[in-house]
Design a binder for these strands. Structure first.
Length: 473
DNA sequence: ATGTAC
């Protein structure tokens, strides 16, 4: 792998072979070692992405880069629709609009301590979790689902599931304008109907946390965060609906790509021109699934508020921000409209951007970086650097260190839930196996990703959050 | 991530 160091944490892979642009990646010394240890498999993936038609210089990866389906996780790639630019389901990921929503409570850590078991049980009861989990207390019909896919959380708020002010603090108000439910299959509809308001499995979670350190008082003040304060972090996506959409369009695009003269150096990069019937259909379905995911986090927020109330903790939960980390969106960068794919990468718009809520505008957009369930998560802010260098993007999480299989082996004979409890963290989970796979030591330290992001100037550290209660699939 | 193999 041929690359050169541009600055402390920034590297460039010069264009070679079929690449149409250079690739740029961000890494610390430690991340560089991890990349070498996997024989640069994920860097080769970003070089593959750079071969796709209509890509706008450069193809990028964030500091939490790791191997993914076609595109690497942590990948950012922009395409120009006027230059034959493509859209690729592998550049968005199977869990369309997987993302995180952070809530803040007008409570201190000590307020939770007295009722933590009660709250943990209430939350676990309020938010169905695990593979195939469904909601039985609210029923949505096909017409409702259609509205949800078109309008996102706004529709739910209109039905009493949340507050008008919630919407202002969701990326793009939780409504991607290109959504077209007509391009979502019956099968995807079926899978989505019962899954709105559920968590799912794997790395998805709902955590009650507290703010344990503030790095940037001004930004934290703007976001409404103070030391010791209670927060709730919700990490989930579009469940079976988004998965079904992705699967169907990967298959369609494998057929379509050669018809449009798109050469695929890897089948998992299946793509179609943005301006083609297939490309537009995927954008319609993907945006619909994205709106469903925003709505999913909205409904979970509603039931989280109910759980807090039932545990005698009031109804003061406010949405700090809701941020996608698997999607493709039209944005203006460098004076032209491009389709930015972010796969395991977040939008990170800098100070002054009109897309950032007025209350946060001088600080920059909140960037939420979930860590593992035993350590911590981070709040960052978007910067001028991210706007200049990464199409307004930043890192999205810690990244696995051990495979699921290796994690299970490491957890054998141990009781991870009890170990967590000894650390003062209550765990409620649908499956012991998932908790084993998700234990702290299966993940890289999120602090490493955050340090590299901060040092590279594509995000600014604002606060650190520590878990108190974890609800898992 | 995923009705973890329609």
């Amino acid at each position: 792998m041929n690359f050169e160091q541009v600055s402390g944490y920034k590297y460039r892979i010069p264009r070679t072979g079929k690449m149409r642009t250079d690739a740029v990646f961000y890494a610390s010394e430690e991340i560089l070692k991890d990349l070498a240890a996997e024989n640069y498999a994920s860097l080769r993936q970003i070089c593959n992405v750079a071969t796709l038609t209509g890509i706008v210089e450069p193809a990028l990866t964030m500091p939490d880069i790791h191997w993914g389906y076609g595109f690497p996780i942590g990948g950012v790639a922009a395409f120009d629709p006027d230059e034959g630019g493509v859209v690729s389901p592998g550049g968005v990921g199977f869990d369309i609009n997987c993302g995180v929503r952070l809530l803040t409570a007008p409570l201190g850590r000590e307020d939770i301590a007295r009722r933590s078991k009660e709250l943990a049980d209430a939350l676990y009861g309020a938010v169905p979790s695990g593979v195939g989990s469904v909601r039985k207390d609210v029923r949505f019909g096909r017409k409702d689902l259609r509205q949800i896919m078109e309008r996102g959380p706004e529709w739910l708020v209109g039905r009493g599931y949340g507050r008008e002010e919630d919407l202002e603090y969701i990326e793009s108000r939780g409504r991607l304008p290109d959504a077209d439910p007509d391009h979502v299959s019956d099968r995807a509809y079926e899978r989505g109907l019962k899954q709105l308001g559920t968590l799912g499995s794997g790395n998805h979670f709902l955590e009650v946390q507290y703010v344990d350190e503030i790095y940037d008082e001004e930004a934290a003040g703007a976001y409404g965060l103070s030391e010791g304060q209670v927060t709730v972090l919700i990490h989930t996506g579009s469940r079976g609906l988004g998965h079904q959409v992705c699967q169907e369009y990967v298959e369609l695009f494998l057929e379509a790509a050669p018809e449009y003269g798109i050469e695929l150096v890897d089948r998992q990069l299946a793509a179609a021109p943005i301006e083609s019937p297939e490309g537009r259909a995927y954008l319609g379905a993907m945006s619909a699934a994205a709106n469903f995911a925003f709505a999913n986090r909205q409904l979970i927020t509603h039931f989280t508020r109910e759980a807090f109330e039932s545990a005698g903790l009031g109804d003061g939960l406010r949405v700090l921000y809701d941020l996608a980390h698997n999607n493709a969106k039209f944005e203006e960068h460098g004076g032209r409209k491009v389709l930015v794919h972010r796969k395991g990468a977040t939008r990170a718009f800098g100070p002054g951007n009109p897309e950032v809520p007025a209350r946060y505008r001088s600080a920059g957009q909140p960037v939420l970086v979930p860590g593992d369930m035993g350590r911590y998560s981070f709040v960052l802010a978007g910067t001028e650097g991210s706007m200049r260098e990464t199409f307004g993007s930043s890192a999205h999480g810690a990244g696995r260190k051990l495979s699921r299989k290796k994690a299970k082996k490491a957890a054998k004979g141990r009781n991870i839930i009890r170990e967590m409890e000894r650390l003062g963290i209550l765990v409620r989970a649908a499956s012991r196996a998932t908790v084993d796979e998700e234990m702290s030591e299966a993940y890289k330290d999120a602090a490493g990703v955050v340090e590299a992001t901060h040092a590279a100037g594509i995000g600014r550290k604002v606060a650190r959050l520590r878990p108190l209660i974890v609800v898992k699939g």
